[in-house]
Design a protein around this nucleic acid. Structure first.
Lengths: 166, 166
DNA sequence: GCAGACTAGCTAACGCTGTTAGCGGAGGCA
DNA sequence: TGCCTCCGCTAACAGCGTTAGCTAGTCTGC
């Protein structure tokens, strides 16, 4: 395991435990017993570390969606399950936080490809479906739904709207 | 105009110009010609300033949705238009950034009430609809759609899915 | 009119952040 | 042996939110 991989592993661990806010150059370095400036021997800046974590998260999500098969319900369930299992990783790849210019080409698209195919080639529908999934996950993770809200029903209602033939 | 109002006005201006990242206690203070620590005579901490901005943004969004009337298409268009007009304000009220415990009761709910009513009382559908709108706006603001993507069509496809009787 | 209290500004400083400069030891190689 | 590269280190800088403590002005009560 290269030092570079060690840094990424430590950072991912830290991310899972304390969220993006707990991910500082000093805490990452301390995790593997070195000083913060030494990290710059392996990565040009913090954004490069974050981008690597984002790439790993996107690939992991894409694999999970892939494994769910072609059924819309299954893909939706997989999307939600992955996000709830790795809430901080989802936070890292959502919104403005994405370092899009530092990702390998295609990685970003792969993470939503599963939803695209479930829309049967209609691009506008596919994007709306992606937005629905993203929005549901974001609102749930941010605690924007009431505590007693039945989020599963909201997913079911949303997916049902899209499962009808347009 | 009280000093408190002056601070909020300066902060909102700064937010609109430079986004949440450009909103620091020092820049806010400099905007009105005082030093950062003096802000603490008027607000307990930065979160209180942010919460005030969030409350203003939520009220503004709610008013915009209210003015759009009961039609689903109109509400969707109003939601998107408000977000694109005030992208940084939308960023401030989306996701984990919301200081929910510091907002006046009901303010948060009011900003999605318009979408709720458009779902004709079906709560699960209402939440999915809200998620769709939120997701579409987030993805568009974050530049996650390709540059040549027809976002209007995605909105149309999404709203069409929800406009069919369940 | 004067004393005391309150208000709202100030400077200095603390601990945190990402980051840079510069130093030094270890290993590989001619 | 000398040199080069790699990878660690410490010290430091600017910026962040925030606190402590001082001071000038203003307002209130006697």
């Amino acid at each position: 395991m290269s030092r570079r991989d060690e840094i990424i592993a430590a950072a991912e661990d830290l991310l899972d435990r304390g969220g993006p806010a707990g991910l500082s150059m000093r805490t990452i370095a301390a995790e593997i017993g070195i000083q913060a400036p030494s990290l710059y021997r392996h990565f040009p800046d913090k954004a490069a570390i974050e981008a690597t974590l984002q790439e790993r998260a996107l690939r992991s999500l894409a694999a999970r969606l892939d494994a769910a098969g072609p059924q819309l319900d299954a893909i939706g369930a997989a999307y939600r399950e992955w996000a709830l299992t790795h809430p901080h990783r989802y936070a890292l790849i959502s919104g403005q936080a994405l370092h899009r210019d530092r990702l390998s080409p295609g990685v970003e698209a792969a993470a939503s490809a599963g939803l695209q195919t479930a829309a049967h080639g209609d691009q506008a529908r596919a994007r709306a479906l992606w937005a629905l999934a993203h929005g549901l996950v974001e609102l749930e993770l941010a605690g924007r739904f009431p505590d007693d809200a039945d989020v599963s029903s909201a997913w079911a209602a949303g997916l049902a709207a899209f499962s009808r033939v347009g």
